[in-house]
Design a protein around this nucleic acid. Structure first.
Lengths: 231, 231
DNA sequence: AAATAAAACTGATCTATATCATATTTATTA
DNA sequence: TAATAAATATGATATAGATCAGTTTTATTT
């Protein structure tokens, strides 16, 4: 009955598919030579929407949000755990502009790969290009799902979604320490901070989750899942 | 002050960039040999989310909507005028499943290109692959903008957006005959049919647009633009 | 041309969720 | 350890926009 793959506000696509696997040894060396490693502290901006995109960003360690800058509110497109690329949609002809901003949730390590080198590899190695297309499409699916949820589900469904997503795709555990504030969760679910707190309380009162400080534990997975689906 | 490119619910990216230009004569012949031309009447389904994607769809003539199937509501991702590809995100490793549905607004002509042929061309011709990446990224920008608008702007802004989009990017005229019903507009702007009608009336009462039957004329472009921006 | 169906329109009501105001708890700094 | 700031929590109120229940207009079929 239910449809294929869009039932989730979840911001992470859990595939370990890397486009770099399609590169030859010498091509990988080219990347090595043209990359820089940078450390970011919690809360810092990795890239800024509208600025010149001189590089493709690989998040080696950490956790980041990718978001559109808006007035008065931003819109989080996705959360990116380690192992993912940021800035692929900047690969355009002509203008290399970051289409979104990104910022870290926790201390993170990033590799900056020269965008022209990256582009050149695409133009030279069709298998690499094919992999890049795959990654882009994975991303598209994910954003579509999120788009659907934010525009169609209501508060309880959206928050359940995100909590499940964090448990299943970021922390791989039903019990985790959340590095996000209620305010971050609000931004992520497109609701007000107060509503996040209230819905959270509902979940607690109904025995679906337990929280203490930064720790969150999903107790009734089944029910949370149903709430996420029903909206 | 305002940010770069996301201020629009608009569903069409008006670039005439075609990925086919990167193909050689013999490659184009391969496509010719492996494609089928099909006519669709107004309102018919071109592809169905979740079904097997055996082909990439090129909309030769007509106008279509691309949407996610949802319960109880669908979510329109974009409107596609003639000259665009439908189904590119289905290019995945493994499963070739349509990630969305598409249906015509008016009688349309479509070319169906075998997806494996298409994939093979990507793998053989990196320039073609690069072009496909460009098209995918254009699409991404567009969806991001729409995502932002539908989650952040309110009714008047969203409807103004769509009307401007139709005028500027679909009909290339401030005066046009709208092949969409109020209900279609509602689906497109994520509002109820009644609200579309009411906001439309507001625009008319304020002398921003004129309507009679299917005809719509944007009179005060400046003001409509401001409404679209302010939200 | 009459009958029927589908859009378009209008007003009244309802509701989900934001906003505001304030209190309490937790974290950070001095 | 006190002082300050930030995050979390809670209740009261406001509101944008949906839903419902109709009426009128336009389109389609017989």
């Amino acid at each position: 009955m239910h449809n294929t793959g869009y039932t989730n506000t979840c911001t992470v696509y859990n595939s370990k598919l890397s486009c770099f696997e399609a590169l030859t040894k010498s091509e990988l060396e080219v990347i090595e030579k043209n990359k820089v490693v940078v450390n970011y502290r919690k809360g810092e901006n990795i890239c800024k929407q509208g600025s010149f995109a001189s590089h493709i960003i690989f998040l080696r360690e950490g956790l980041a949000k990718v978001y559109l800058e808006g007035n008065p509110k931003n819109l989080i497109l996705k959360i990116t755990p380690a192992g993912n690329l940021i800035g692929l949609p900047s690969i355009y002809d002509g203008n290399n502009i970051f289409l979104y901003s990104a910022a870290t949730y926790i201390n993170s390590v990033v590799e900056l790969i020269d965008i022209n080198v990256f582009k050149q590899l695409i133009k030279e190695n069709p298998k690499f290009a094919y992999r890049v297309i795959n990654v882009l499409n994975e991303n598209t699916v994910q954003i579509y799902g999120r788009f659907y949820c934010l525009t169609n589900k209501q508060l309880h469904g959206r928050l359940a979604d995100i909590l499940l997503c964090l448990a299943q795709r970021i922390f791989y555990d039903m019990e985790f320490d959340l590095p996000l504030s209620r305010n971050d969760l609000a931004e992520l679910t497109g609701m007000s901070t107060e509503s996040v707190i209230r819905v959270m309380k509902d979940f607690k009162d109904d025995g679906l989750i337990e929280t203490s400080g930064k720790a969150i534990k999903i107790i009734n997975f089944e029910m949370m899942n149903r709430i996420s689906e029903v909206g």
